[in-house]
Design a protein around this nucleic acid. Sequence first.
RNA 1: GGAGAGAUGGCAGAGCGGUUUAAUGCGGCGGUCUUGAAAACCGUUGUGGGUAACACCACCGGGGGUUCGAAUCCCUCUCUCUCCGCCA
Length: 423
Amino acid sequence: MLQIAYIRQNKDKAIERLKIKNFNASELIESIIQKDEQKRKIKSDLDSVLSSQNNIAKEIGLLYKGGKKEAAEQKKEETKLLKQKEKELSDLFDNLEEEINSLIVQLPNTPHELVKPGKTSEDNEIVIEEKIESLGNEFRPHWEICERLKIIDFELGNKITGAGFPVYRNHGAKLQRALINFFLDEATNEGFEEQQVPLFVNEDSAYATGQLPDKEGQMYHIGVDNFYLIPTAEVPITNIFRDVIIEKDKLPIKYVGYTPCFRREAGSYGKDVRGLNRLHQFDKVEIVQIDTPENSYQRLEEMRNYVCKLLSKLGLHYRVLRLCGGDISFTSAMTYDMEVYSKGQDRWLEVSSVSNFETFQSNRLKLRYRDEERKTQLLHTLNGSALALPRIVASILENNNTKDGVIIPKCLTKYTGFEIIKY
RNA sequence: GGAGAGAUGGCAGAGCGGUUUAAUGCGGCGGUCUUGAAAACCGUUGUGGGUAACACCACCGGGGGUUCGAAUCCCUCUCUCUCCGCCA
């Protein structure tokens, strides 16, 4: 959520920036500013009414103490009008506040200056491409390989739960566990502190990171207890810092967590959902950073480089895209997507997305630090996948397939205990 | 799941209808003293809104109510603790 003060002071700039996201904000922003002005006017009127009431109450207290009962009773009369006024003003105030809030949540985050205009993913800018020779030579879609090796069973998942809930079996399960451990160990070596967090969150948490109110349909909801299944570890990990003021010397915060993720993916279909490409439940290792506005873009670059390093170690041909205005998410100011070229499907698969949200999340989280003058300021939050498991598994299977089996990347063998999954 | 108790500032903990814009202690920060440190002493120390700066307003788990006036009384929700039951 953008800050009201920012909108007020940078109206034209905000409108200009949001055009990059193909979002015409002028009407919305005008309306917000106008209502905000009204709101502040009413607030000051309301405050003076409350102030009068406080004073009268104090006087009445003193009169009673002095035994002047009649005078006190008379004073009470004076509050009648004030109370009525208070009711009117506070109703107005509440309504305005609600209206402003409902408008302001419709505004996307303003993109960073480096984010270029564009309509679709076609317009994303390729920042880096690292072509790494694959270990395999027989390229097939991973679902065929899985079936032959009996390592991931989609049908079985259908029986137990439904589509999008595969069962990883035998070497498939081990490969997955190896990857999780590899990612966690790498992140720890890079200075990220490991966290294990709840897989369900309450409404407040879902709201704070922006899943609610607009993306409600993407989450699984447990009605009796009013919990949401997390769509990403970003939600619980970032919410560690809800309503927190961090001392500057504790920054940057670098956290990593492994969790399963749950997404309803309503409306998805076709080749995008085949096999491991899109699931309702999948595993992911997520990295989160929190730092000051001055440092946050340096942190973003670090995270990007870190993810690239992982992909290199895995021996996967990858590229890094800086998302254009049309493709970047609602909440992000700048996003890099990492894609891996998967030979069996002959397509690029998105395996990571690292973003700087600037103050868009911290504003709702009320996540702040104290600056040199001991004043509180909003922090910048960043996060990224490092990495999402299913598509990594898919591309390892597809790129490393040989007639004898799938070759395990060198960096993983100490975790798997085997070097090849044999036919 | 049953019964009871409770939720107050960074922490501990008083206050149970009117100089409380919350006592006191610890911790933090600044200072005096000291070669330096400790101790002692003095001062200071929540968040948000608002203002040029003050004033002023809101906040004692969340929401609602009673009252001229609520941390304090009532209703409701959430959470925590103790005992019992169940249980990985």
